[in-house]
Design a protein around this nucleic acid. Sequence first.
DNA 1: TATTGTTATACTCTATAACTATA
DNA 2: TATAGTTATAGAGTATAACAATA
Lengths: 140, 140
Amino acid sequence: MEDPLRSYPGYSLRRASVAVMGELSRQLDLLGLRFTESSVLLLVRSNPGITQSQLSRMLDIKRANMAPLVARLEDRKLLDRTPVDGRSHGLSLSIQGTELSAQVASLVEAFESKISDAVPAEHRAHLLPALSALWRAFGG
Amino acid sequence: MEDPLRSYPGYSLRRASVAVMGELSRQLDLLGLRFTESSVLLLVRSNPGITQSQLSRMLDIKRANMAPLVARLEDRKLLDRTPVDGRSHGLSLSIQGTELSAQVASLVEAFESKISDAVPAEHRAHLLPALSALWRAFGG
DNA sequence: TATTGTTATACTCTATAACTATA
DNA sequence: TATAGTTATAGAGTATAACAATA
C-alpha cells in the first residue's frame, strides 16, 4: 500500500504530535486533568498572580475559552483568584493546587524524558530547535 | 514572564503541529477542503480501489468517522465507489477528483518545502527521522 | 478607546456503542 | 466469529460575535 504521507515532515509532525499528546493525556487523566488544565496549572505555578489574559496569550487559547477552563479549576479548589484591579484577577495555586501541580510537573518531566529517549541519539539534540523554529515561523 | 513549557519538546511538538497545520488548513480551505478530506484524496490517488477500512487504518481515523467523511467527498462527485464484495467498496477518483487531488498534491508539495525552509539548515535533515521515531514509539 | 472577563454558539476532530449485512 | 459500513451521540479543543465593566 502506497503511503505518500509518511515522507512528509508536516504530516509526520501532526501524527507524532497526536500520538505523543494522546499518551500524555492518558497519563494526565490519572490525575483528573486535561492537557489544557495541566498547562494552566504549570504556568500559574511558575507565575503566581498571572491573569487569565496573560495565560491566554502564552498558551494561545482564546480568552473566551479560558474563562470556563479557569472556572473549572477554581471550582475544584485548585486555583484562587484575587483582584488586581477592577477588571482582572491574579491567579494563584491553592494548597491543593500546589500539591497537584507538583505532581503534574514531575509527571511531565518524566514524560519529556520518555520523549527524548524515543528519539535516536543522533537526532535528539536537533528536535527542540527544529520544533521551536517551526512554532516561531508558523505561529503567527 | 516564566514559560517552562517552551523548553519541553513535547509542548513544542504540539504548538509546532498546531501552528503548521493551521496554516496548511487555511491554504486547503481555498480548495474547499479540510485537512482530513485532503489526506483521503491523496491516499486514494496513490491507491485507487482502496477501501474505507484500509483508509481508516492508514490515517488512524475510526471507521465510524470515515463514513461521513467519504460520503461528503462522494456527494461532491470527487470520489466514486465500486463494490469489491458484498460489504466493501473500492474508492477511486472521479475526473473532478483527479483534477482536485492534483491541485492538493502540488499545494502540499509546496507547503512541505516551506516547512523545510523554516527549519535551520543544521537541523533540517534530522526533523523527519526524529518525528517518525516519535510517531512509531507512541503511535500504538 | 482599548482591555478584561463572560456567555452563547458553532465547527472540527475524535471516541464509543450499537446495529445491519457480509465474509 | 470477524470484518465492513453505518448511525447516533458525546467530549475536547477551537473560533467568532456580542456584551458589561473597567482602564
